[in-house]
Amino acid sequence: MPRILGRRLLSAAVTLFGASLAVFAVLDVLPGNAAAILLGTAARPDTMAAMAHQLGLDRPAYLRYGSWIAGAVSGDLGYSAAYGVPVRGLILERLAVTLPLAAIALTLAVSIGVTLGVLAAGRAHRWPDRAASTAAQLGMAVPDFWIGIMLILVFSTTLRWFSAGGFGGWDDPAAGVRSLLLPAVALALPQAAVLSRVTRAAVLEVLTEDFIRTARAKGVSAGRVLWRHALPVAIMPVLTIVGLQVSFLIAGAVLVETVFNLPGLGRLAYQALAQRDLVVMRSVAFLFAALVIGVNMLVDLAQPWLDPRLRRG
């Protein structure tokens, strides 16, 4: 067990290092003169040189990379040229929107997806299964940001139950959650569709196993077999897919935060591009990559603890 843990941690660390190199190459080395990008090519050469010095661009690339990583470890991510504030504070402020948004969306997606999947597996090839499959096919095809626009159309523009976007901060927690609700639903529905299909397939596979036949022979009710015997085993592949879906959740957050005008991390990355603020962008892009790598590692490591057969065996 410790050997598997060690190997998994090492491989995640190597991937993380590669991701940081990729981000640095694309956003720092390849663009060439970041001072020219910020000031425009018409800037006077001495202004350009002063800016380059201020940004540390007169130092070689490996030193710049080193100080970025060293800074990241100590919590100093540099200074945003566009906002005139430290990048660290900017990211923390935006995380306070994006993390709760992702958490609500993930909770919704897992509860809707797993429930639908188990119900469909319990009545496989009959009408509830057909209905759930059709719903899942449609859910997977519809873009999350369009669901967002449609939710605004129905619940804000027409019914006026919710505001059409924006975020007032966490001073009033109820209002905060309320403004994240529609965007979270938009993010959750396509994910729920994917998860319901995976859950259905996983539960159907578990239902063919011997311990299920034993449970049925002992007279355990159909519902209990499904939810208490089959689901805990079937949740493993579902969890793996949840890990893989994090990448789509992040991509969705960039779009849905734009649709709902939420001051989140995805929107920050988008604004940083518009403002040519590459210092902000590299840290946000790396944070996103680190999230994908980290979540998938955790999912892998959690497998042995969650599988009831491995736990007791």
Binding site: T15, A22, V23, L27, S247, I250, Y270, M281, I293
Partner: peptide, 20 residues
């Protein structure tokens, strides 16, 4: 592992980086 590395970047994030 190179393939795994690419997978760490959500499409919209690599889109923003390439657009930069």
């Amino acid at each position: 592992r190179v393939a795994d590395l690419l997978f760490a970047f959500p499409a919209l994030v690599s889109g923003l980086m390439i657009a930069a």
